[in-house]
Design a protein around this nucleic acid. Structure first.
Lengths: 153, 153
DNA sequence: CCACAATGGTTGCAAAACGAAACCAAATAA
DNA sequence: TTATTTGGTTTCGTTTTGCAACCATTGTGG
């Protein structure tokens, strides 16, 4: 009667959600992308309970999304930093952010801009090899033999 | 002592997660993108408990991600279909899927291809206005005045 | 018409996860 | 030495989850 696990569903989306699909993990990752690295800073900026934060950070480290680095500065002091795998969630987080901006209006004073030019980012889209944007209706789901996919996972 | 709500955090990512950030919602949306529309089909394909499915579908409808359509065919028969807002999650779901493929290897027999050409999709990336891909290190987080963002939400 | 099945739900219960606050321990600062 | 900062665990009450059983409406087969 444990909470259902998604790792055995044979679906990439499911196993991704198994790693970062709970209420807090992606928020922690997003906060890390803003530069937050220390335990207390995550706690204060997110308003998350300490035990939950502890649990999530451990799981993120287990899954290779973050690493815990000992920076012996004062007391017991560590930093939680994104790995390459964690930084690669930038697309997901940005897509989510833009989706929310599009459909729920601007509730956020923060903007993302190109560091070089200062210009806002382009909307994240799914594209084909030529860079043409594709909607869900422009794609087909096929199995490894190229046959249309019949409902499963 | 309810679960923490994210709608009041003043962060787009947080309010997006408030709508689709639980274990099941994005999976339901993904399944809908595969063509699933009926209650029983969601239940069978996802292996989700009926009460949870019911609850999640209601919330998705409330949030305008899906609509419930009465198709009076047999017994009480409804279809749950994605709205434009729901279909717009395609980017998020695809980014998640590709992330999982890249970092967890291929656990999925399903591929997405361009319906026109049959070619696989390009990797989803964050881009600037010129279409150049950007990593999280290539962007800056600024407030509405263009000043660097100081840690908050 | 009647029994029966299918669909879409709801209810009740036990197990697990969550949230808040208190407590704890290592290491440095005063 | 004492206090403080940091990171973490424990305890406990509430909420959520998962499962199974039950219910109601609208067909269909006989």
């Amino acid at each position: 009667m444990t909470r259902k696990r998604f790792d055995e569903m044979g679906c990439c989306v499911a196993s991704a959600l198994n790693e970062v699909g709970d209420w807090w993990s992606l928020l922690i990752v997003k906060q890390a992308m803003l530069g937050t690295r220390r335990y207390v800073d995550f706690q204060n900026s997110l308003g998350i309970a300490k035990n939950i934060l502890c649990n999530r950070l451990s799981r993120l480290v287990e899954n290779g999304v973050m690493v815990r680095v000992d920076v012996g500065e004062h007391g017991k002091r560590y930093e939680y930093r994104l790995t390459d795998k964690g930084r690669d969630l930038f697309t997901v987080v940005t897509a989510l952010r833009q989706w929310s901006e599009r459909w729920n209006g601007e509730q956020d004073s923060m903007k993302l801009v190109d560091r070089q030019t200062g210009e806002p980012l382009a909307p994240v889209t799914v594209q084909n090899q030529q860079g043409q944007p594709l909607t869900v209706r422009d794609v087909r789901f096929v199995d490894e033999n190229g046959k249309p996919f019949e409902e499963a996972g």
